[in-house]
Design a protein around this nucleic acid. Structure first.
Lengths: 137, 137
DNA sequence: AATCAAATGCAACCAACTTGCACATTCGAG
DNA sequence: CTCGAATGTGCAAGTTGGTTGCATTTGATT
């Protein structure tokens, strides 16, 4: 019985324990996770090494299974990519610093690039207060 | 005769040589500049110290005179803020890593946040190839 | 010109991330 | 099943970008 993570990984390369667990954690996360958060979530026996985690995450990103977003604390946050990848918006809470993935939100952009620029993808980041901080404020 | 930089700075605080020169450099830049690029642009007598530059940049950002954007090399890039600040789009070249400011581009977003989220501002980042890299590709 | 809050310069520090290399694992071929 | 080459992993040490604490200097108000 192969996990969802394994099914996602196999077409791209080896399904190692580290990759499986990391992707499982990301798939189950409600928000984008920092390296440290992911590390804390992992069992000690899987991936006892920070470096491996960095490499696993980079690999997932390179295979488009995860997204890498820059927070304002100069550390990366990661989240599993559900399906397509286009038009996917992020919400950054300016109070707690957390980044939430608004996968339901399919913003309608309308713009045209200046001549010479070649379009690949676009990402919308919305700043504000998350529900929890909005409550507390 | 006060420079444009000085006029922008004075309402917020002291117009020191470091602040003046840094803002001048940013105002004259065609794209978002990294700390190192700015440092290289400065005369050696103004701001001989990395730390001061960091502080000047943070100060400019805190006064909304500059923008701070995260590149994919975990270093910040800065650019002078022209006027308003809302709806201002960035173009990130995936080949050379440069970030260009598309100030003319006023994208029309249409979205509604899930309940509980409080909106403050939004930023659109477009990925692709810049004119120079597009040419070379 | 005197004053003092605000800014600077220095030196040390820190955390996030990378690199190089030896060792272990995966998984497909036989 | 088992063997082996390609692929990952683990460790130690290094690099980079950014920060902190504190003594000294400086801008602009009086």
């Amino acid at each position: 019985m192969a996990s969802q993570a394994e099914l996602l990984i196999r077409p791209h390369g080896r399904a190692t324990p580290a990759r499986r667990r990391v992707l499982e954690v990301l798939l189950g996360a409600a928000h984008a996770m920092s390296h440290a958060e992911i590390e804390a979530e992992l069992e000690t026996d899987v991936c006892p090494d920070r470096v491996t985690l960095y490499r696993v995450l980079d690999w997932l990103v390179s295979k488009r299974l995860a997204h890498k977003i820059a927070g304002d604390d100069r550390a990366w946050r990661f989240n599993a990519v559900a399906a397509d990848g286009h038009g996917h918006a992020h919400f950054h809470c300016t109070r707690c610093g957390q980044v939430y993935c608004l996968s339901e939100l399919q913003p309608a952009f309308a713009f045209s690039l200046p001549p010479g620029y070649r379009f690949d993808s676009a990402e919308l980041t919305i700043q504000g207060l998350c529900p929890r901080c909005s409550e507390a404020a």
